[in-house]
Computed example of a mutant assay.
Amino acid sequence: MRRIKIGVIGCGMISEVYLQNCTQVFHHVLEVVAVADLVPELAAKRAKEFNVPTSCSVEELLANPEIEIVLNLTAPVAHTIVNEQILNAGKHVYTEKPFALTREDADKILNLAETKGLLVGCAPDTFLGASMQTCIKLIEDGEIGTPFAANASIILGTPANGNHPNVQNFLKLGGDPIMDMGPYYLTALVAMLGPIKRVTGSAQKLYEEVTITNEDSPRFGETFPVEAPTNVAATLDFDNGVVANLQATKESFGYKPKVEIFGTKGNLVVPDPNFFGPFPEFPVVVDVEIQYPNFETKTIPLTHGFCENSRGIGVADMAYALQSGRKHRASGQLAKHILDVSLGIFEASEKEKHIHIASTVDRPAALPVGLKDNQLD
């Protein structure tokens, strides 16, 4: 298996963990040869930190004939235009979520990639981690019987209490709870249960503007308009008959995730899909009915690797796919389906009706059990 040369566009906060993993965890299949950013100093800093040989402009990176995959870590509003540039340069693209902010932009990228014979991948890739792959195996092995319902909640602290230097981005579409954090949970649900065919929901804003109250924030005291819904509830109907409830909000005082899958023989408590492995307070747990109303709760050992923060595994999986000819798992088609569902929730609230999801997608192939040396095949 040869190493695929990649470049990274966007050297902000999220680039640190990607570069760490691409240069240290997945270095057997990936070789980072260049980084670029609109702020040259950021690119130079990342290149020095991770021993990347070249920091350069976006144009120079795209002109490098050795680079086969470009990792797009720009802000959500720039994803489509940068992805288009990458594809037009003849390179495969893996982008941070959300895939796009409109269905038209998502389709434009997928159609362009198909025309050029190139691959498109998209975060999140957390569903390839130890927690989610263990849960997928439990469901496939029939541990909880036939799934029929699910419940997921993403309770996040308000951006007003944070210290992010670009806090205003979390009050716009793309930084809202559904488009920002929703992909982790929706992708996990689709990976476990299959595609979603219909949604309804309510999307609301608690405030029209917020003032930054965290004294440690560089934006302390500034006031910003709230441009996107910050409190959303949805009902999701899956192709296989499962009905799920989803609550997503950025109005709380802290962070509290929860995902449960209910089956005819037991209930699965799923660790936070925002991470690769479970925390002690969020283990993989199966509640199995023994004799009503008594239940046996079993903590399940992990069956798969990649328990630590493995962001970048989706890029590595794409590099394997390029060489083997198989499908890559964190695909653009999966991301488009998640975008369809996300926008469908907003439309359902606006139109006060169910929205049928036009796209569909196959469940990504599960990773084999017992992989060695961080291999993905």
Rank of each mutant, 00 (worst) to 15 (best):
P273G: 02
E49C: 02
N274H: 06
Q85M: 15
I154T: 04
P280A: 00
K298S: 00
V70P: 13
T264I: 05
D180W: 09
Y94F: 15
E143Y: 02
L376E: 09
V284T: 00
K256S: 14
A113F: 04
P283R: 00
L87Q: 06
H27N: 15
D105N: 14
P229F: 08
G312L: 05
E215N: 04
L156F: 09
D107N: 11
Y18L: 10
G277V: 00
L119C: 14
G277I: 00
I67N: 06
A358Y: 00
A106V: 10
A152M: 15
K250H: 14
I6F: 07
A106S: 13
P278M: 00
T297I: 02
V210H: 01
V8Y: 05
T235G: 10
L246E: 09
P368E: 04
L73D: 09
P124H: 07
T80S: 12
T299A: 00
Y185R: 01
I300T: 01
T360S: 15
T134E: 02
L367G: 10
R2Q: 13
G344E: 03
A365V: 12
A358H: 06
G194T: 03
A36L: 08
I136P: 00
I144A: 04
T80G: 04
S310V: 01
P98M: 13
N231W: 14
E104K: 15
G174Y: 11
M179W: 07
V70A: 12
V341A: 11
Y207Q: 13
I300C: 00
N83K: 07
P165F: 03
K116W: 01
A366W: 02
A123Q: 12
N83C: 15
E140C: 05
H304D: 01
I14C: 03
A316E: 12
I290A: 06
V341I: 15
A330Q: 09
I144L: 06
D105K: 06
E84Q: 11
D216V: 01
T158A: 10
